[in-house]
């Protein structure tokens, strides 16, 4: 069954988007991403250490021709910083898709939603393909879609917290009203969290810590790949309803007396 995932006009087979942070080294990063089957990977933009410019670069290990590189604006606390970061990212020449993050608080790393909306407006106007990291605020999600973002990415829980989906009810409402892809981003902890997101009808899941922070990242990457696929198939298959009382599965007739 063909069940492609379309994002800004491009089709992808994998609905798992992974981050490249917090790995032991570039070799582990590359192996984990391969195991995850992800086709879109996020990266951050940071100053080069000019006193000791590393000869190796992340893109030496993740071929931009093979992967869609999704620069994020992590570390930005204002719309202006995020916009500036996106403009820098675009000049790298790997595309104009960006993960917009405008952080409102250092402890929770929750997004500053008004600033995110402000940045999204400017970036969409400048022709960026914007994937905004946001809260599960259903109004914010709607506004981001109205602005012209290519997807909406509500957080499951704080970045790196591993708590899984904390508010499935709001996520359901977002899924119900959105006409653009909904990608759960941040807070995923283990495989079942991904499956739950996909079973609900999410279009994709984005994670970093869940894989990079696992005891065996490459194995977790594989688990996440399977979990996303399993959840998606379960969603498409149409689950049985939840009932209070039992309904027998073996026939009631012909029972021995």
């Amino acid at each position: 069954m063909e069940d492609g995932f379309k994002l800004a006009g491009k089709s992808y087979r994998s609905r798992l988007i992974v981050g490249t942070g917090k790995y032991k080294d570039f070799h582990e990063t590359k192996k984990a991403i391969e195991a995850s089957g992800a086709e879109i990977v996020t990266v951050a933009i940071r100053r080069v250490n000019i006193t000791d410019p590393n000869k190796e670069n992340l893109l030496d290990f993740l071929d931009p021709k093979k992967y869609t590189i999704l620069p994020n604006t992590a570390g930005c606390f204002t719309a202006e910083e995020a916009i500036r970061t996106c403009r820098l990212a675009r000049e790298a020449g790997v595309g104009n898709m960006v993960k917009l993050e405008v952080i409102g608080d250092e402890r929770t790393l929750f997004p500053d939603v008004p600033a995110t909306l402000e940045a999204a407006r400017v970036l969409v106007k400048e022709g960026f393909v914007v994937l905004p990291y946001t809260t599960d605020d259903t109004i914010a999600a709607r506004k981001l879609e109205e602005i012209g973002c290519a997807a909406v990415m509500p957080l499951a829980a704080p970045i790196g917290s591993g708590l899984g989906i904390r508010n499935p009810y709001n996520l359901r409402i977002i899924l119900d009203q959105a006409r653009i892809p909904v990608i759960v981003d941040a807070g995923v902890g283990t495989a079942s969290d991904s499956s739950i997101a996909m079973e609900m009808g999410c279009d994709g899941v984005l994670m970093n810590t869940a894989i990079a922070g696992a005891k065996i990242p490459i194995l977790m990457a594989e688990a996440m790949k399977l979990a996303v696929e399993a959840g998606r198939k379960a969603f498409l298959a149409g689950r049985v309803p939840k009932k209070l009382y039992a309904t027998a599965t073996s026939p009631l007739e012909g029972v021995l007396a």
């Binding site: 992340l58 992590a74 000049e91 020449g93």
Partner: peptide, 29 residues
């Protein structure tokens, strides 16, 4: 504060007081 396109690297001369940022992609979520 202006992003330089790569084609202009060879023709942009630096002067006193210039604020230069050199950035690259690193691992991130």
């Amino acid at each position: 504060r202006d992003v330089l396109s790569r084609e202009t690297h060879g023709s942009t001369t630096l002067k006193e007081g210039d604020q230069i940022e050199i950035v690259h992609f690193v691992g991130g979520g």
